[in-house]
Design a protein around this nucleic acid. Structure first.
Lengths: 129, 129
DNA sequence: TTAACATATGAACATATGCTCACACGTAAA
DNA sequence: TTTACGTGTGAGCATATGTTCATATGTTAA
């Protein structure tokens, strides 16, 4: 895409391309464009990673990786207020990253499925290199 | 962790715990706390996911999944300015998610390693359910 | 060297995000 | 029903983030 200034320059010079390789390699660019997953799907994917991309939420998930826990436990383990934890659990719930069950006054949380485990594992491997 | 108000209440009432289960299940909480990965490692992990957690960057990565591309190609494929793409590529470079090579005036980008492919794959599976 | 091209980057701006505070909601025991 | 407990949530604030604009840097050809 062109900036406003670039467009003005192109209007003046009469050029119709951004950079030289677009002439010879339009096929390559077109090929990639065709094989691109829909922007909506990629938006969903980025939303998933965005949910995982927070220190507090990752710590919550790693704690839940060890054991089912209630909000109060998580508050104690992470050393954060119940409110802060609860707000983040809401984000994790909305993204279907955790599931929960009520037992009396308490609400116990778990990781939602095996994919979450895999993502955490592979991510950790990458980080540890 | 306790809010300021909760602490005041506890000072007045003489309580020393947040919620009842902390008495009987301190072992559980302690066990999870011990097995928690270091907060620094989890911070690194969250930084990685944060980098993946943006629509523009995910689209860049999916384009690079198809083929090695220069900044100009990416600009054309995503329909965004060269500047915006370049700024995001810097983020991806810093996080070691992409690598690059210069060829004349152009700089070609690639995904850094197989882990990135795996993360994108598994994430996509989760999203598609 | 000069000109043109491809890319990188700093500043500024608007928007998004995470935590705190205060309080509402839901449950169970008195 | 009233009370206490555990959890959920809206508003407000400070900080973080993504894009644009203008310009700098690096490379090649004339």
């Amino acid at each position: 895409m062109l900036t406003r200034k670039e467009k003005e320059v192109m209007d003046i010079t009469g050029k119709d391309k951004i950079c030289d390789n677009l002439c010879s390699l339009t096929e390559k660019v077109e090929s990639v464009r065709e094989k691109m997953v829909s922007s909506e799907k990629l938006l969903e994917l980025s939303e998933l990673f965005k949910v995982l991309g927070d220190h507090t939420r990752i710590r919550i998930l790693y704690a839940l990786f060890q054991s089912e826990l209630c909000v109060c436990d998580l508050s104690e383990i992470l050393g954060m207020t119940q409110s802060a934890i609860s707000h983040q659990l809401r984000v994790l719930r909305s993204a279907k990253v955790v599931k929960y069950r009520r037992e009396g006054k308490k609400v116990y949380y778990n990781l939602d499925d095996a994919h979450i485990f895999s993502l955490l594992d592979i991510g950790m491997i990458h980080v540890n290199e």
